[in-house]
Design a protein around this nucleic acid. Structure first.
Lengths: 205, 205
DNA sequence: TATTATACTGTATATTTTTACAGTATATTA
DNA sequence: TAATATACTGTAAAAATATACAGTATAATA
């Protein structure tokens, strides 16, 4: 399979996302709107290139006649088997097979933001945020977190789910339970690794 | 979900098959060709009926703007567009199109039990159960509920989400918030309709 | 028996959409 | 330095498409 240029990749992704969202492919004009092009011919040319390289096929004369031959990412019909990882006291929550308790069939885009895995909550430290033991918190792997975000942070071998509050060299990991106390870290003395942040939660009744 | 007529079923299947084959939905004319109709209006009418009954949604003004909401056959690892209904103070939470706030792509079997729709929570009456305002509670339509279940009950025009507790003729709807009081109903005097029970919850952070 | 729902045909038109053609600009390769 | 590939703008016209309107026919329902 021939390699794609940067813009061709953008267009292909745009088509995939649109298809994922609406259930039907975009028109040339819609691709332009999405990617900021001002001429439908811009989209047309990229689509032709994608067809020539075998990534899509175009039904000539049909509106929205684009079908994707080779997907970049596997959207897998909207439903992936998302892994569930136990929030173990020790160690980083890795996606290694032995840490995966089970998998749940659901859409990685069911929340506002996409996510990578579920973390199964242990303990009651976040109970006042409505987060119970055994709830599954959807975690997006990222280090881009803001104060107030619900984050997964690793301190040495300890992994914890808390509210994030950082001020210069001072990091505070704030629980939502008055019986627990805030974890305070001086980042000049101790390292802290942000593993990700919560984008949602699911609970089985 | 309302039942389909024979011809509506044919049209829905035709759309699914076409989509499966080509990757994009058919036009009215193509549906006609496929099913032997001689007027595009025949297809149009059936599509309108399918939309009204909630099986598809039609993007008005867009060519091939059909997306399938509810598939007839369920495939493995299926992902449906599950409706989200606002918990309005008055009236039964019906699946009529005007009550559907939006739809979320997810697996109807992602919880232990299957479910039919999401109910968007209003108010704080269940806060101590970790159920917050705007949480989406997955509701399975059933009247088969046990004491202690989290249920959706309708009393006259009032719909409420509470814990279920029934003893002979006495029904209690118990909140999880000390600022709210239990609703007590004598079933010999007032009717109560169990709309369904919660099988799970999702929350977007 | 009148009314309503289902299930179409047939036509027409406004709108959407594809797609061709004529250019411009820039970076890379020969 | 010329040629080539990438990456567009801008315009326009032909074709595809949605969709409204006016009918017809039939079976079920009130």
């Amino acid at each position: 399979m021939k390699e794609l240029t940067k813009q061709q990749t953008k267009v292909l992704t745009c088509v995939e996302v649109y298809l994922n969202k609406t259930g039907f492919p975009p028109t040339r004009a819609e691709i332009c709107r999405e990617l900021g092009f001002k001429s439908p011919n811009a989209a047309e040319m990229h689509l032709r290139a994608l067809e020539k390289k075998g990534y899509i096929s175009i039904q000539s004369g049909s509106s929205r006649g684009i079908s994707i031959v080779k997907r970049q990412q596997s959207f897998m019909g909207n439903s992936d088997q998302m892994p569930v990882i136990g929030l173990v006291a020790a160690g980083s929550p890795t996606l290694a097979e032995e840490n995966i308790e089970k998998r749940i069939s659901c859409d990685p885009n069911m929340f506002k933001d996409s996510f990578d895995y579920f973390l199964k909550v242990k303990g009651l430290s976040m109970i006042d945020a409505g987060i119970h033991e055994d709830d599954l918190v959807a975690i997006k792997k990222t280090t881009d977190v803001k104060n107030g975000d619900l984050v997964v942070v690793r301190l040495e071998d300890e992994v914890t789910l808390k509210y994030f509050k950082k001020d210069n060299h001072s990091l505070e990991l704030v629980p939502a339970n008055k019986d627990f106390s805030t974890i305070k870290v001086d980042l000049r003395e101790q390292e802290a690794f942000v593993e990700g942040k919560s984008v949602g939660l699911i609970r089985t009744h």
